[in-house]
Design a protein around this nucleic acid. Structure first.
Length: 314
DNA sequence: GCCATGAATCGAATTACTTCA
DNA sequence: TCTGAAGTAATTCGATTCATG
């Protein structure tokens, strides 16, 4: 998702009237448009107007970067908001104006669940602007995701997300983690699949999520890992079973041939001495080292132990 | 040392929501 | 536009562990 803040008046650049209060005294049309855009489609979700006496309107596109993933100083581990000016014909210009904001001074300072916070996700950025800039209501045309973001932001502002802090009866809102957040969590998961309380808190702070969300993500991630491993094991066992079945078929056929040979030539049986051996414990005929009786697929170690346990139990 | 209790955490199962074809 | 499948965040529940009195 790309967040863009379009901010402009008739003549001045964003730098000229940022912060907003600077512009308030001028006769300008401060058009605030907060766009939520995907790579392929971007539509204004809502717009708000500050100031009176519109003359003309020039929209300066800005790129709003949430930067919880860049190296974060320990003194201020909270995400920065970077407003990057995008010229009309160059969407990725050098930052002309960077607003380092810290809209969530109380993030993750409160204990885990059950405590309503003024934010819990980058989506809350919108609610922050929503509130601070006095933007209200939608102007239509927004894609469903943007609308949802607004709803989430509203819900979060109301402190009504999740059952833990959902005490006013609102249904839970499912937050979609951003790609960056997911990637960061993935990296963290690679390092350690479980979290101690400190790691959880740190991650929550860095990603601007609630500790409970981090915890849930790791739980679900472990479940996914296990499910994937189970699928792999199932596939492996399937192949193993097929191999054994084929081997059994081959040996049955070989046995039949031997029996036929025995009946037709009772006095002439010259078999290679290494082909068949007798197991001393179970007294069954087993394949010797010269044969191909060993399955071509061997069980993974963790499945071997399970198989042995099963065998011992039975 | 043993026991009861509560908090924290986990896995498993499930639900609810979003996205996409 | 509708719909079903897939993916996943969130919830619920029971089991386990650990600290505390």
């Amino acid at each position: 998702m790309e967040l863009a803040l379009s901010l402009g008046d008739g003549s001045t650049s964003f730098r000229d009237h940022a912060p907003v209060s600077k512009a308030s005294g001028k006769d300008l049309d401060l058009r605030v448009a907060l766009d939520i855009a995907d790579e392929d489609r971007g539509k204004s979700v809502f717009t708000g107007r500050a100031g009176e006496g519109a003359r003309s309107r020039v929209v300066f596109p800005f790129q709003l970067d949430l930067l919880p993933f860049s190296p974060v100083p320990r003194s201020n581990p909270l995400p920065q908001l970077r407003l990057q000016c995008l010229s009309e014909n160059q969407r990725s210009a050098e930052p002309a104006a960077i607003l380092d904001t810290n809209p969530f001074p109380a993030v993750a300072e409160e204990a885990d669940d059950g405590v309503s916070q003024s934010h819990s996700s980058p989506n809350s950025v919108m609610s922050s602007f929503h509130m601070e800039l006095g933007i209200s209501g939608g102007s239509g045309g927004g894609r469903s995701g943007g609308k949802r973001d607004l709803e989430v932001a509203d819900a979060e502002r109301d402190g009504s997300r999740g059952s833990d802090d959902d005490e006013n009866g609102l249904a839970r809102k499912k937050l979609r983690l951003s790609k960056e957040q997911s990637a960061f969590l993935e990296e963290s998961f690679k390092e350690h699949s479980t979290l101690n309380p400190k790691q959880k808190l740190d991650l929550a702070k860095q990603l601007n999520l609630r500790p409970r969300q981090v915890e849930v993500w790791f739980q679900n991630r472990r479940a996914r890992t296990k499910l994937k491993q189970t699928e792999i094991d199932c596939e492996y066992l399937k192949r193993y079973c097929e191999t054994l079945t084929e081997e059994n078929r081959r040996l049955q056929k070989e046995l039949q041939e031997l029996r036929a040979l025995k009946t037709s030539q009772p006095f002439y049986m010259q078999l290679p001495a290494t082909t068949l051996t007798m197991c001393p414990s179970c007294e069954r005929v087993a394949a010797g080292p010269a044969s191909n009786a060993k399955p071509r697929v061997s069980l993974p170690i963790h499945l071997q132990s399970q198989a042995q346990a099963h065998k011992a139990a039975s």
